[in-house]
C-alpha cells in the first residue's frame, strides 16, 4: 500500500486539521490525506489515484527520507489543472501498465523503491517524466520550508549576515 491513501474522514475534519497544520487548503470534493491526517490535499481535475501516483513518483525521482510527503505534494499540486490533465492521465496510465506487466496492481502498490525506479528509468526520456522531473527542481527545492531539513539557512541580511554568527566557525579542521 502506498503511504498516501484516501481516508474516511469528513472534509470538514480534514480542513480543520490541515489549516491547523498550516498545510494545504481543501476546497472541493475529492481529496488526499496523509494516513495520520497531518495534512490533506484536494484534487478537482485529476483523480486521487493520479495525484497519489504523482506524489510517489516525485519521491522516487528525488528521494529524501527526511522530507515528508507534504512537501512532495506541494511540489506536484500544480498538475491538478485542466492543461495538465492529458499529460497526467497518459503518464500515470503508462506507469500503472508497466507495474502491471511486472505483476503488481499499480505503480503505487509496488513495495520497493528499486522496482519503481526501474520503471521510471525505462521511461526516462518521455515528456511526462522530463516534465515532472524538471518541475521538481524548483517545485521541491525552492520551498523555503524544506531548506532547514538540509541545514540551509536562507537569507541572512535581516540578521546582519554571518560576520558575528559563525562565517568562520569550522572547528574540526
Amino acid at each position: 500500500m502506498s503511504k498516501i491513501e484516501r481516508q474516511g474522514l469528513t472534509r470538514r475534519a480534514l480542513l480543520a486539521r490541515s489549516v491547523a497544520a498550516g498545510a494545504l487548503v481543501v476546497t472541493g470534493a475529492g481529496f488526499l490525506a496523509a494516513p495520520d491526517a497531518a495534512w490533506a490535499m484536494e484534487v478537482s481535475v485529476i483523480s486521487e489515484h493520479q495525484m497519489a501516483t504523482l506524489i510517489q513518483m516525485a519521491r522516487d525521482i528525488y528521494p529524501h527520507d527526511r522530507i515528508a510527503d507534504q512537501f512532495y505534494a506541494i511540489a506536484v499540486k500544480g498538475y491538478d489543472a485542466d492543461d495538465k490533465k492529458a499529460l497526467v492521465e497518459e503518464g500515470v496510465a503508462a506507469l500503472d501498465a508497466a507495474a502491471q506487466a511486472a505483476g503488481h496492481a499499480d505503480y503505487i502498490s509496488m513495495g520497493w523503491e528499486e522496482d519503481r525506479v526501474s520503471i521510471l528509468q525505462a521511461m526516462e526520456d518521455s515528456g511526462f517524466f522530463q516534465t515532472v522531473r524538471g518541475g521538481l527542481v524548483t517545485g521541491l527545492y525552492n520551498q523555503k520550508d524544506v531548506w532547514p531539513i538540509f541545514g540551509y539557512e536562507g537569507e541572512s541580511f535581516s540578521k546582519g549576515g554571518y560576520i558575528e554568527r559563525g562565517f568562520d566557525d569550522i572547528n574540526w579542521l
Binding site: Y62, P63, H64, R133, V137, L140, Y141, F150
Partner: peptide, 18 residues
Amino acid sequence: IPFMAAFLNPGAWGRSFT
C-alpha cells in the same frame, strides 16, 4: 540549496543525486 539542486548535476535524479 535551490541552485545546487539545479546545477550540481543537471538532469540527474535518484539516490546518488539526492
